[in-house]
Amino acid sequence: MMRVGMWDSSSISTLFSGLNGSRNTSSASSFINNLDLGTYSSIKSGSYFKLLKSYYSENLDSKASSLVSSSVATAADDTKTLGKIQSDAGDLVKSAQDLYKSGSKDDADTTYKKVSAFVDDYNSLVSAASKSETSKITKNLESMQSLTDMNAKSLAKIGISIDSKSGKLSVDEETFKKADQTKVKALFNGNGSYAYGVATKASMMEYTAKSEAEKSNTYSANGRYNNTYSSGSNYNYFL
């Protein structure tokens, strides 16, 4: 009788004779007979997992495929792109809030500085979000730019123009400061204003970018491991 270390094939067959839950005894015997002696020997060295994985390979492969298909990165954009969108959208939300929450207390110089910051943040978000392939982000970008187009005439009266190709804004300081400040405030002050509408769209892009960046990517937008990987759930499933 062939022996492996202190084991013989009869002893090993006995060891696995109870593995007949969903499979019959002949299947277990076939499994034993198809293993080489080196694999038998590995039991002694603590490599039982190798045998277990081989025995349950069909079920394990099925579960593994299911796990991988549900846990791999599903975001349409890479984390760097999403992180940039999230950051720029957050900046635009803040600059827009500085305008629509300021009321009528600001003079023309102060308002111009805030509008200038708003324009810069708006343009940065347009550049970042234009590179996105995430439908929710692109739809909100289009909605934000449509809102701007709807207010194009009013914006032009206070010195803010829209580039027809890029959709970006530019503000002429002299025209802006000479403009009727009542019209400026109508566009940028209070809930329901143009600035408020832009902040709403930017906020939605910020939320979507953050959510997409956390969809089972190895790293989150801030460079840390995301929850799936830091918890080790994918790795531990197979141990």
Rank of each mutant, 00 (worst) to 15 (best):
M6G: 03
M6T: 11
S13Y: 08
S17M: 12
G18T: 13
N20H: 14
R23N: 11
R23W: 10
N24L: 12
S26D: 15
S26F: 13
S29R: 14
I32E: 15
N33A: 11
N34R: 12
L35S: 09
S41L: 09
K44G: 12
S47N: 06
K50W: 13
K53R: 05
S54C: 00
Y55Q: 02
Y56M: 05
S57V: 14
D61C: 07
D61T: 07
S62L: 04
S62N: 14
S69P: 03
V72T: 07
T74V: 02
A75G: 01
A76S: 09
T79P: 08
T81N: 12
Q86V: 05
D91N: 11
L92W: 11
L92V: 03
A96M: 08
L99R: 11
Y100D: 05
K101C: 09
S102W: 06
K105A: 13
D106W: 11
D107A: 08
A108Y: 06
T110C: 03
T110Q: 09
T111G: 04
Y112V: 14
K113H: 01
S116H: 05
A117K: 14
S127L: 05
S135C: 01
S135A: 06
K136H: 06
E142Y: 02
E142F: 04
E142M: 04
Q145Y: 00
L147P: 01
T148S: 10
L155W: 05
K157G: 10
G159K: 08
I160W: 05
S161R: 13
S164D: 06
V171K: 02
V171G: 05
E174S: 09
K178M: 03
K178N: 11
D180T: 04
T182V: 06
T182Y: 07
L187E: 00
N189T: 12
S193D: 01
Y194P: 00
Y196C: 00
A199H: 07
A199D: 02
S203D: 12
M204F: 03
M204L: 00
E206R: 13
A209P: 03
S211H: 04
E212S: 03
A221G: 00
A221Y: 09
N222H: 04
G223K: 08
Y225H: 12
N227P: 06
T228P: 07
G232F: 08
S233N: 10
S233C: 04
Y235M: 13
Y235L: 15
N236S: 05
N236V: 06
N236M: 09
N236A: 01
L239W: 10
